[in-house]
Structures are given as C-alpha cells and as structure tokens.
Write a protein that binds this DNA or RNA. Structure first.
Length: 323
DNA sequence: AAGACTCGCAACCGCCGAGCA
DNA sequence: CTGCTCGGCGGTTGCGAGTCT
C-alpha cells in the first residue's frame, strides 16, 4: 500500500506556528460541533490548515483537559518506570498520565529524563547500566575533546585503555545498582505504577520488610548516587544495546505483563494479582536471569558492601574527569 | 556587544493499521 | 480481496530564547 498525503500538495495550506486567531477558530468550531472528521474541520472552521495539523494542535495544545506546567516527581517516576517497560510507546505512557500528551511526555523524556538517567550511569534506552565498551570509548573521546581537559587521563592517548578503566568503574557501579535493585524488588511488586518507596514500605503486606533492610537500602542508594552523581550530561547519540534480540525478548515479556496490568486497571472488579518480577525498578536488571536472581538475593550481606566500598568506586576518578 | 552555540518545545513528516466500499 | 481514506503514532526538524565566549 502506498503512502497518501493527508492534504493535497497543491492546496498551499499554511504551516508553522498557530496564531491566536486560528486557535480561537478551531476551539470555537470543535466546542460547537465536536471533531468527527478532521479532514473537514479546517474547511468548515474557516482555517487554511491541513486536517492533521488541526488534530495535532487540538490534542497537544487546545484540548481543555490538558495539564500545563512542570512535571511532578511522581509523574517523572511513572514515566521512567513505564518507559523501562514499554520503550518509546509514548501514547501508552500518556494514557497513564491524565492531562499529559504523548508529545509532551516524549519531549520531556528526551530533554530532561534522558539526561537525568545518563547522569546516573543508566542507558535511557535500555534502563541498564552503561557498560558498553564502544560507547565508553566514544564518550571518553567526547569528554576530552569537548572540555579540552585531562588528556593525561587518556593513558598516553590510548582510548582503549582509558575505556577499560571507565568500564571497570562502571561495572562496580552496576554491582551496586544490582544490589539496590535486589533490595527494592520485593518492595515494588504490588503496583507497577507505584512511585514512592516509602509508600511501598508502608503498604507492602506480602513481604516482611525490616527496618534493617530499609536502612541498608537508603545507605546503598546514597552510595550509588554519590558515586554516580558526578557523571555529567552526555550528548549520546550512540546505542549501547549489545544484544538486541535479548532485549526485544525481554521487552515483549514485560509488555505482556504491562498488558495484564492495564487490563486489570481498566477492569472495575480488580482481583489480587502477584506482580512478583513484573516491574523492574528505575534500573532494569542486566538480564532476565539476573532479574530472577535478584529475588533470591533478598538478604543483605554487609560484607559485600564493605568489599565493594574498598575495591570499588573511586569518587576522585570521576571528579578528575569532570571537575 | 555581538556572534556562536545550546536547549527546549511546538509542529511537521512519514509510516502504519483499522475500517470501509 | 483490494484499494482508498483517515486517524494515530513515533521520529525529526526548525525556530525562538537563553547562555557562552
């Protein structure tokens, strides 16, 4: 099937930003007549616009139920959680955020959340810790050339050695992330859209969450943030998906679980469903196997942490690179 | 002060699937 | 079954505003 333009090319229709007069005409018409056929609306409303352009203007800007203003922390976390499950399915993500449009969420994710995740050493596309060697080589080039600093850290202009060093650091970060993930996983099971860890602590009834675990979790999390917090914004155009088939399998498995949840949330007669394993937290496990392992590893071993602490993260390393 | 650069976001483009004749 | 139309979606672009040099 060929592609058909939504509007005739020779019609010389107006493009670009909408004026307030045009907005008024469109709102006026839709409030009186509704929007059943977008192709007819511009003519009937007296607009020299393509029907598609009218629909976009209405759904993304003029609709009366649109929520304006900054995204809340809760909305941010919902977006990140759902994006880790659904990928770039912006319309499905938007369905869970009343008053927000897919376009708005897409823009917000690409401009703000993407950077936020990168700062935490998380790939915004896969929600996995960044550990791809080629990416690290690329990043090391970007940083040293962009900032024109710290060339001595390139190990005598050997980008591979430098990248290996970066990878070692990132691997340690990933270990800590995995620990944090394993501690959060049993907490975050009852509602995939739940965003508040404290709420989860309070409401989780099917698992015993001790104060000890909470304390250790907070400590680990702060360690993670302190270790990763100095990683700057990256303008990363490269992919670090090393195994796309594994990723797509994982994603489709998650999608079916989300479908289950969406079906459930649309159904008034909710039944208790065990979402065990259905929701990766902000950081997805490196593989489905690890996701399973995470459940087994619910007991926190303080020796593991002290070991990581000694041989692992070196804050001064990141500070040297990104002052 | 001004030109270069970066960033955020509204709007557009092109593809796809559903529905219909 | 086929071809056409429309609405919806995700990716991309372009422009204005802000920041940097």
């Amino acid at each position: 099937m060929g592609r058909y333009p939504c509007c005739k090319v020779d019609e010389d229709l107006k493009k670009g930003p909408w004026t307030s007069e045009e907005d008024e005409k469109l709102m006026d018409f839709i409030s009186k007549n509704g929007h059943t056929n977008w192709q007819l609306i511009p003519k009937k409303a007296g607009l020299n616009r393509c029907g598609k352009s009218c629909r976009l203007r209405w759904t993304n800007y003029l609709r009366p139920d649109i929520k304006r203003g900054e995204f809340s922390i809760e909305e941010e976390e919902i977006i990140i959680n759902l994006h880790s499950l659904l990928g770039n399915k912006w319309s499905r993500i938007a369905a869970h955020l009343p008053g927000r449009t897919d376009n708005e969420i897409k823009n917000f994710y690409n401009t703000h959340l993407r950077k936020k995740l990168l700062r935490l050493g998380i790939d915004p596309r896969t929600h996995k810790p960044i550990s791809d060697l080629n990416l690290l080589i690329n990043l090391s080039h970007q940083f040293t050339s962009k900032h024109n600093i710290n060339h001595h850290l390139m190990n005598n202009n050997n980008p591979l050695a430098y990248a290996l060093k970066l990878q070692a650091q990132v691997t340690e970060i990933a270990k800590i992330q995995q620990l944090v993930h394993s501690l959060f996983t049993p907490i975050n099971i009852n509602n995939p859209l739940s965003t508040n860890f404290h709420e989860n602590f309070a409401t989780s009834s099917s698992h015993v969450i001790t104060n000890n675990v909470a304390t250790n979790t907070q400590f680990l999390n702060s360690l993670l943030v302190n270790s990763c917090g100095n990683i700057p914004n990256l303008d990363n155009s490269t992919s670090c998906i090393s195994n796309s088939s594994e990723l797509s399998n994982y994603q489709s498995e998650l999608n079916s679980k989300v479908d289950n949840f969406e079906g459930l949330s649309n159904n008034s007669s909710k039944t208790q469903v065990d979402y065990n394993n259905s929701l990766p937290s902000l950081i997805a496990p490196s593989s489905p196997d690890q996701a399973n392992d995470a459940h087994v590893n619910q007991d926190y071993d303080p020796n593991t942490l002290s070991q990581l602490n000694h041989e692992g993260i070196d804050d001064s390393f990141w500070n040297d690179i990104f002052p």
